[in-house]
Amino acid sequence: MKEGQHDQHIKKYGMVIDLDKCTGCGACMVACMQENNIPFQKDETDKMLSITWLRVFKLDNGKPYPDTDICYLPRPCMHCSGIGEHGHSPCVSVCPATATDYSMETGIVSQIYTRCFGCRYCMAACPYHVRHFNWWDPVWPSGMERSLNPNVSVRMRGVVEKCNFCFQRYQIAKEKAFTEGRTEIEEHEYQPACVEACPANAITFGDLLNPKHKVYKLKQDPRAFRLLEKLHTNPKVYYLSSREWVREAGDNYIENEKVDVEPKKH
C-alpha cells in the first residue's frame, strides 16, 4: 500500500524480546528455518554464507571471571520504519527494482523473490545483517522435501531473502477472519513461528499501535531499548534487559558521551 493510504486499520507489527528470559536455546532459529523453508548446505562451517533469518547472538560484558556475564540476543529483521515513519527503511529505499517493499498497512518489510535480481544493495544497506543471499540453489536431502511448508515458496539461487515476520501466517489469519465474516484478526491469530517456539516466552509479537496488544505496553517498559537507535533506522523490534551493559551494547557511544541506557520511566 502506498504512503498516504492510511486508514483506521493501519497496523505496525513488531516484536518485544525479553533478554532477561532468553536462554539462548535456539528453538526460535530452528522453528524459523522449518517454517520458512530456509535452505542449508552440506557444509555450514562458514556462517557468513549461511542463511539465518533469525540469529541468536551471544554477547558478553568483556569482564574476566568472576564478573563475566553473558546475554543471548535473538536478531530477526528489524522491519525498520526509517526516518519519519515514511517506510524509508535503509533497504527498501535503495532496492533498484522495487523487489523489497514497506507495507504501510502492516509495517512489514517484504521481499519479492521473483522480482529480486540479486544486486545485493539491500544487504549493503542493512546495518543489522538480517539480509541473506542465496549463494547456492536450495537442495533438500531426499525425503526432506516432504517437510517443506506448502505456504512458503522456496527461493532460487541468486536472490536475497530475510525474515518477514512469517507473513504467510498473517495471510492465513486474514483469510480465516474473512471466511468468518470478520475484518480484523485477533492478536493470537497471527504469531510468527519463533514466538510460538520460544519455551521461555521471551518473544512477544503484536501490533505496536494497538493498546490491547501486549507489545504495546511492553515497548514502554523501562528496560526497553532498540538496536542502533542513533542511526534513525527506527526498528520495530524492541529488547528488554534489566542489565545496563546489555542495553549499552545496543548502540555505539563515543568516549565521554552521556550514555542514555538508564531504565526509562514512563
Binding site: C95, P96, A97, A99, C116, F117, C119, N134
Partner: peptide, 26 residues
Amino acid sequence: IDIGQPLRGWFIFWHANVHSMLTEVA
C-alpha cells in the same frame, strides 16, 4: 556478472525504483 540473476538484469529498468541511486546509475 555481478548480479545473482543475470537474466533478470532488465528488471532494474522495467521495475525501476526512482528513489534508488543504483537505478539512476543503471
